[in-house]
Design a protein around this nucleic acid. Structure first.
Lengths: 361, 361
DNA sequence: CTGAAAGCGCTAACAC
DNA sequence: GTGTTAGCGCTTTCAG
């Protein structure tokens, strides 16, 4: 008895007396019945349910998902890791993920990695401690990612977004065909009459997509008998208009045999580059054509709409989540046998003709 | 015995045998000691701790935060509700929040409301069920928000971001002085020689900031003996360049006594408006000056850098979180007495001269 | 259709 | 310093 009293006293002063247990008491039913009213209503008689519901309403009952999750050993929380929200492409993807999650009754926990593998590890560990049921991830480099290997080893379900898995790999991924779409984009440049075309990218090491898109560029060039030119590799994937960066761009575009068209591996970069060119006294597309990649909405809102390779960003997010939930529903336990199906979902890309590409002068 | 066996069998097949309990066994210590090694290491002897740590390492132990949270009655999760991530201003704010949270060991749960009060209610209820310790919120209209009233009633700690609380209100908020900063912005327009200045905004009903900024506009106009003009109120806070919207803008800017300068209540809107003007054959700032509000980074990266009123977005997020944690640490229980301090933190704004404002023709 | 009871993994008194 | 123990709030057999 004393023990009991002590135990009660130590209880952190019920911040919320509205527990299921109290609801049950108020409705004169057992805890089990009260629980069922919320999780399996069909198992309880109409009027009993109503009584419980009324009691819940009066007490202002709000289910504590923590208890439920702990017991159920599944949280219905999905971890999402994206490089940054400040690049609209990921904000658009997030929207797709969030809508899909909402529709399916899942919650999300978002972390950003800033394209930093070290930080990727830490943030994912964090998600793991929260016992997320699975994750939607965009990593710097899927092919050599220690953290992905770890996730595989621990059998944590995840789906890559934007990172494109190999055609017959074991990893799930949702993306466009980076290489083919980049090639298609560059081909529009070639079709416009450009011969000297260069890639502008953030650090290739920090983005497998950038590398794949670069490969697509090479495909296009070679297919048309053109010599791939060395790329302009900038430090970041989002533009910083530091003097150093501006100077690098200046040197690049004013060299003796400067390119007549630039293929930027993402739209933000393209936007930044266009502005730098302008500042350098070059007109776009008069003196230099610029093609982006991503298809962010913003591109269409600009004074000079951005010509770009469009990815269905919302859909990439939504499909990635759907793919993850499908995994969760099915062979969650014990990883179903490989059905020989490709696990890399490729969504169609499109080309958006803006006003930043024209025939060379 | 039978019971016991049954109970074990029903356990959802340990997806993770690496529990604290098992670590404790492996290290031949009690559960309590093992727990202390992680939460209060100073309470346990060096070598004991090492043994536990080693065992944990071998078993691949990862603390299950769910159990800890349930027991501790605090989750160390902060709920964040922002209107949308697709407006960079909120993406920048998120960054500030995330960095601050990371530094303090808090996790975040992000939801977006799309400027929709109904959705605000639902999403917040969601956060509440997850037992977040507190929230950082940007709501459509803080002054008449049912959900905020509810949060007050339930004594859920929260801090508003962007929504500006009244000088001596009871609510915590972190923002700039919307009215004063807007006034300062419009005054730069007046200083440039403009007399006919109009506000362009998304639906005022859906944003108290838009209304406050509009009030600042009126202040500026009146202070300079100018007649406030009727605003152009667009349906959304982010631009959609639908034919209908373009047409509305056209009528507005080609009317007999059309304005010579436009003050847009946010940067995204300004960017969209500039592009529409261009399409309508008007040059900015030649035929029309445009001033934005928000100071998103993107504004500086544009071909024609956006003139705008700058808010410290990262800092708004970081400070809002800090303010929330301060609340949590102190009078979490029982809402400390009103210290007469203003709970509305006002951060300094700035004016950024871009290239979209010039003297009227 | 309803109830009793056994925990999910962890923390925090309290006792030793 | 360390162990014992009683739950946090909920779900889910198993038994009526």
């Amino acid at each position: 008895m004393i023990r009991k009293a002590a135990a009660i006293a130590t209880t952190p002063a019920p911040p919320n007396g509205a527990t299921l247990m109290n609801v049950a008491k108020a409705a004169s039913v057992s805890l089990a019945t009260a629980s069922r009213v919320f999780s399996n209503p069909e198992l309880v008689r109409q009027d009993t349910a109503e009584r419980v519901l009324r009691a819940a309403g009066e007490l202002g009952f709000r289910p504590n998902l923590l208890g439920a999750k702990l017991r159920a050993q599944r949280t219905r929380i999905i971890g999402v890791m994206l490089p940054t929200m400040e690049n609209a492409v990921f904000a658009e993807c997030w929207r797709g993920i969030e809508e899909a999650a909402l529709a399916q009754g899942y919650s999300l926990m978002l972390v950003t990695s800033r394209y930093d593998p070290q930080r990727e590890r830490e943030r994912i560990e964090y998600l793991l401690r929260h016992r997320v049921d699975g994750m939607v991830l965009t990593v710097a480099d899927a092919a050599r990612s220690a953290v992905l290997d770890q996730l595989d080893a621990e059998r944590v379900p995840y789906v890559l977004a934007y990172n494109q898995g190999p055609r017959s790999g074991k990893r799930y991924s949702v993306s466009v065909d980076n290489r083919a779409s980049a090639r298609a984009g560059v081909e529009t440049l070639i079709a416009a009459g450009h011969r000297r075309i260069c890639v502008v990218s953030g650090a290739f090491a920090a983005s497998d997509r950038a590398r794949q898109r670069h490969a697509g560029y090479r495909d296009a060039m070679r297919a048309h008998g053109l010599e791939p030119l060395p790329p302009l590799s900038l430090p970041a994937h989002t533009p910083t208009q530091t003097p150093a960066e501006v100077e690098r761009i200046r040197q690049f575009v004013t060299a003796p045999s400067a390119p007549t068209a630039l293929f930027c591996t993402n739209d933000m970069l393209a936007i930044g580059v266009i502005s730098v060119l302008k500042r350098l006294g070059l007109s776009v597309p008069g003196d230099m054509s610029v093609l982006g990649y991503d298809g962010i909405e913003l591109g269409q809102l600009l004074e000079r709409p951005l010509s770009t390779v469009v990815q269905p960003n919302n859909e990439i997010g939504a499909r990635a989540l759907a793919c993850l939930l499908a995994q969760l529903d099915s062979g969650n336990a014990g990883a179903g046998p490989d059905q020989g199906l490709t696990r890399a979902t490729l969504l169609p890309h499109a080309l958006r003709a803006g006003a930043t590409v024209a025939p060379p002068a």
